[in-house]
Simulated scan of single mutants.
Amino acid sequence: MGKSQKYTEDQLLEGVVRYSEFNKKKVKATELAIWCRDNVDGLEEVRDYHFTRNIQVHSPKTGKLIERQKLCTQRINEINKSRNLRVSINSNLILKASNIDVVFELSKSVLRNLIVETREMFDTLLSKNYHLERENEVLRSINKNQKTSIEEVNIKVSDLQKSLKRLSKQVNYLMKEVDMENRIKTLEKMGIEDEAIDLNTYTENLQQTIEDVMNINKILLEQINNNTIFDEDSNSIEGHSEDVNDYYVEDVISGIDFD
């Protein structure tokens, strides 16, 4: 046996019918329940799921327990389908009948309801059109602002490209100037200047001075210390002071005929 329901189907159906007369838009269960709690006797504690949850009943054919939609749920679906603008337009005889005489053959009550439905659709279309026009105005304003912004960005990008081009030229020029300046400084350190060569500086740059090159005393001292000359007297030189070395250098120089 199915679970007993807090509200009868007639109570819930009454709530849907009365709410649909008050609200001409699509029926939403949450809003329906809120309205019924304040406006329908006996539904003071109703919730949205009371209108949408299926109920369990015994099948008249098999006797088995099955689920089905409540009558109020079925009515909500019918109302929402009829209030679907596209469906309403396609099913409206005034708008879609191939022969308008068919409309006048309807009973007065059916014709009246059809006229009311058509007027409601017309009002809905006017409202939608109004909102669409407002939205289009907003979109046009946004597009205009975006177009202006894009143009400003393009100008800035163009200016930036020009600045980068100028900067690139300046950098290349400075690099050439710096390279030239460095080359000049390097040559000056080597003793090479415009139309002149400082031989002493050039020699120093080669890690030798003129004095080092022409200093016979120094050369002879190096030879003596390395035992490359005066081998026969090398034993007598060992342990002597710098004065002894100077003596041998002077002795050697005195024997050289510079004439």
Rank of each mutant, 00 (worst) to 15 (best):
M1P: 14
G2K: 14
T8P: 10
D10R: 12
L13C: 03
V17R: 13
R18L: 11
K24A: 00
K24P: 01
K25L: 04
K25Q: 12
K25F: 01
K26D: 10
K28H: 10
A29G: 07
W35R: 00
N39V: 03
V40C: 11
D41S: 11
G42P: 03
Y49K: 15
F51H: 07
F51L: 06
Q56C: 11
H58C: 07
G63I: 02
K64N: 08
I66M: 04
E67T: 14
Q69D: 15
Q69E: 08
K70I: 05
K70T: 15
C72T: 01
T73N: 08
Q74S: 10
R75V: 09
I76T: 11
E78S: 06
E78Q: 04
I79K: 00
R86Q: 14
S91M: 07
L93Q: 12
I94V: 10
N99I: 00
D101P: 00
V103F: 08
F104W: 11
L106F: 08
S107E: 08
S109Q: 10
V110Y: 03
L111H: 01
R112P: 01
R119N: 09
M121R: 10
T124C: 13
L126Q: 14
K128V: 01
Y130H: 10
Y130P: 04
H131R: 15
L132C: 06
R134K: 11
E135N: 10
E137N: 13
E137R: 08
L139P: 03
I142T: 12
N143T: 05
S149H: 09
V153G: 03
N154Q: 08
I155G: 03
K156G: 01
S158P: 01
D159T: 14
Q161A: 07
S163M: 04
K165Q: 12
V171Y: 06
L174E: 11
V178N: 15
V178A: 13
E181Y: 15
E181L: 12
R183C: 09
T186V: 01
T186P: 00
M190P: 02
I192W: 08
E193M: 06
E193F: 05
D194S: 04
L199E: 07
N200M: 02
Q208V: 03
Q208P: 00
T209R: 06
T209E: 07
D212A: 08
V213M: 14
M214E: 03
N217V: 05
I219R: 11
L220V: 12
L220A: 04
L221K: 13
E222A: 04
E222Q: 08
Q223P: 03
I224Q: 00
I224L: 15
I224N: 00
N226K: 11
T228Q: 09
T228L: 02
S236Y: 14
I237H: 12
G239T: 06
G239S: 02
H240N: 09
S241C: 03
E242W: 03
V244G: 01
V244H: 14
Y248D: 00
D251A: 15
D251W: 10
S254K: 11
D257L: 07
D257R: 05
F258D: 07
